[in-house]
Every structure is written in C-alpha cells, then in structure tokens.
Design a protein around this nucleic acid. Structure first.
Length: 385
RNA sequence: GGGUAGGUUGAGCAGGUGGUGAGCUCCGCUGACUGUAGAUCAGCCGUCUUCGACUGUGGGGGUUCGAUUCCCUCCCUGCCCA
C-alpha cells in the first residue's frame, strides 16, 4: 500500500449541480473520510485539549506545524522520542504543514530568496534557515502521515507581480520538495498558489497537478479575499483537477459556512485554527449562528449552549456557567469551548458526508447552509436547537 | 477625646501648591479572529440632542475676575496616642 490511497465513493454531481464528493483517504495511521476538517495542533497539541478530547470531538486527522516543532522542541528530539504520533499520544493520522505559512504570518521576521527563507525565531530572535529540503527533512523526522511541500504563500490582495513571483518560486520549491522526500510511509502533498488571478491560478494548478504528489493543496486563500473571490478561484482550480484521482485540500479554511461552499465547489480537506481560536475567545458556534458567551445576557441562562450536542460543554454545563468561567478566566473554559466548536465543525462535516453518501447533497444544500455557523451578522440568541 | 494622613469618573490610582482635571490600570460593555508569535486584539466605559456640549476633584459656606488649589465649617476613612 502506498502512503496515501484516495478514492471517491460518491460524486455529488450525480444528483445535482455540485462538485462535492465523498471519499476515503487511506493513510499510514488510518482512514480519513472526506470532506473532512483537520483541527490544528501547531505545537503538537490542539490547544486546550487532551488527545482524547480531540478524538471525542470527532477528529480523524489533525495538523501540526513543521516550523514550530523544529524550533521547539526540535524535530530531532521528537524523532528520538519515537516520532510525533508517540510524542503527542495521537494515534490517528497527522499532517504537517511545511512552515510555508510562517513566511506570511511572520512576515516581519523573515527574508525570502530563491533558495529558501531566513527566519528570525519568534521565540528568541535567533536566525534559522528554511529551504524546501530542510522542511522535508524536518517533516520526515517528525513522521506525520502527510508532509506538505514548502511553498511561498502571499496575501491574496498582493500585487500581481508579487503573486507571480511567489507562485513561480513555489513551483520550483515543489519540485525540490518532491526530490528531497524519501520516506515511503509518508504521503506528500503539493501546494497550488496563484493568488486571485485566474491565469496564475490555472497555471499553478496545472503545474502542481503535473507532479507526482499524493494530494493537491490549494494555498494562498483563507486570507484577505472575499468569499466571492475565493469561490471564483475554486471555480478555476477544481475543474482543472476533474478526473484527477487525488484529494483536494484548501488550506486554512474554517468557518462552517465557508467549508460548505468550498465542499460544494469540490474541496475534500480543510484545516483551520478558527474554531479553536474563536472558542478561546468566547465564541460558541451553534446551528445558524454563534453565541458570544461573554455577553451579559448569558449570565443567568441555565440552558446548554446547544441542545443535543455531545461535547464536553453542552453535555454537562449551562451557558451561565460557561459565561462565568470566561469572566473568571478559568482554564476549563478553553477546554469546554474548544471541545464544543470542534464538535460542531466536525459534526457539520459529517452531515455533509452523510448527504453525499445518501445522494441528497444538492437537495440538502439549503438546509446545510441554514445550519452553518456564520462568523457574524446572524447571531442566534434564543435558539436551543 | 488628641494627633496625623487622606476623601478624584464602579474599584484602585496619577495629576493638580489661584488660570479650562474626563489621564492610567482593573472591572464592565460590544465587536473581531480562517495552512496559530493570538487564554489575543480593537472600540467603548460621567451625562447628553455624542465630528460637539455639559457636569464632575466628600458636603456646605467664604475670599477671588476665576478655587481641585486659599480660608471656615461639617461629614467620612486609615493609622498613632489616650
């Protein structure tokens, strides 16, 4: 068996105008049903959660970050301690991001050249060098099920010349990443760039798809683009991948509404910090909206955040208690809120998969859209469904 | 009872020794967050007809063109002494 085996088992197009599909991705540590959302555990931990909590929330694969684990505790140490799975006690699949995103997120701490990126550590200011070869070396030492090619994302709103330059470099780095990769038990995904420009996107899609990657990442989105721009971009990328037997992974997307629209346009995999981060900041996602649990009206609300939700918060605690924990800055608040938002997000993806398997996706689309939590503008205050 | 230090916007403070006190930190309120330098960040936080205006330095009175500042008096709090 190769490091990644993907098969589409139900195609939404059979029942209506959609590119959504249900599939199964076999990896070294297990099978991942798609469409799927990957919670992010940057530093070998999904913030605030025990691995058992992550699994209970329904996660079948998580993401960890090469750059962060290289800096601390060091990929060599992780390798000596038995690899990432054993180190963090997570026995399901893991995907490591290449560190490419830090080229953007640490933009004032790095310099990009053709060979690679020189970073100043955000931890202690020390200087570090990341090249495609080095990223792959670190990812092989970490030992995730899936490694990702080292790329150079740029903000979607960047000037065209900047996007073109980064995209061309990403292509060269993709080839170097592949050449550097040697672990047969580890899959390898490549990353499309191209910003919001249809021509560059198409060119990047064709190029990355021409290489022997196990999966195709759509990068450089989930940034400062509008939903319409993102969807237009997907409508450029996905048709060019029609018939391609590999999973499509939109990096960085996280709100349920955004996930649904991307699935509808043919994306299989996602990751995002969003559900966990907003949870830590007191926002609970519920069908059709969200609750900002710190709002004063919840202080006397005895109801759970969401009825029939099996998460650590809703199964036991009231909105009033959660509101109290956030005000009191009790650490339990983070665990309960993160458990809830991940449970909500992963359940939402499961509903999408169920509709695809049942052949009712396009018929259910409106209902799914109504259920999707939106980041703003549609807060539900009296719901308890 | 005597002495002493104080009383500033919910709390804690800064400042101000005759020339326009709305400054800070908490608390509180609201919003943001999308391949995690994020248990973070932003705005608001006396009143109002809110790009501005008004009120406000324990209460009352006095001096003065003008008082948070000087004087008188009362109230309250901490500490020390009886």
């Amino acid at each position: 068996m190769s490091a990644a085996e993907f098969s589409v088992l139900a195609d939404g197009a059979a029942t209506g105008p959609t590119r959504a599909r249900y599939g199964r991705l076999g990896l070294a540590h297990g099978v991942v049903e798609t469409p799927q959302f990957m919670p992010v555990g940057t530093q070998a931990a999904v913030k605030a959660l025990h691995p058992a909590d992550v699994a209970a929330a329904g996660a079948s694969i998580i993401l960890a970050n090469t750059y962060h684990l290289y800096l601390r505790p060091g990929h060599g140490r992780v390798e000596r301690l038995g690899g990432l799975h054993r180190f963090m006690a997570w026995d399901r699949p893991i995907l490591t991001d290449s560190g490419g995103f830090q080229v953007v997120s640490l933009s004032d701490l790095r310099v990009v050249d053709e060979d690679g990126v020189t970073f100043r550590s955000h931890l202690d200011g020390s200087v570090h060098r990341f090249t495609p070869e080095h990223s792959i070396e670190v990812q092989e030492a970490l030992g995730a099920d899936v490694a990702v090619a080292f790329d150079q994302p740029v903000a979607p709103s960047s000037p065209l010349a900047v996007v073109a330059d980064a995209t061309a470099r990403t292509h060269r780095w993709a080839e170097r990443s592949l050449r550097a990769h040697s672990r047969a038990d580890q899959a390898m995904f490549g990353v499309i760039q191209g910003g919001l420009d249809p021509g560059l996107r198409a060119e990047s899609t064709r190029f990355i798809a021409s290489l022997p990657f196990d999966g195709i990442n759509i990068g450089g989105l989930a940034g400062d683009e509008t939903a319409a721009e993102r969807e237009d971009t997907l409508d450029v990328v996905v048709p060019l991948l029609a018939g391609d037997p590999r999973p499509r992974y939109l990096m960085g997307l996280g709100s349920p509404a955004d996930l649904l629209e991307a699935v509808h346009r043919g994306v299989d995999l996602f990751d995002s910090v969003l559900p966990a981060r907003v949870a830590r900041n007191g926002q609970f996602w519920v069908p059709g909206g969200r609750l900002n649990i710190r709002n004063s009206r919840f202080q006397d609300d005895p109801r759970p955040v969401q009825d029939d939700c099996p998460c650590l918060a809703c199964s036991t605690f009231s909105r009033a208690y959660l509101a109290h924990l956030f005000r009191a800055r009790e650490l339990l608040a983070f665990r309960l809120a993160t458990s809830h938002n991940l449970t909500f997000t992963l359940d939402f993806m499961a509903r999408i998969r169920a509709a695809l398997k049942a052949g009712t996706f396009t018929a259910d689309l409106d209902a799914l859209r109504a259920r999707a939590s939106r980041m703003s503008g549609s807060e539900v205050t009296e719901q308890s469904a």
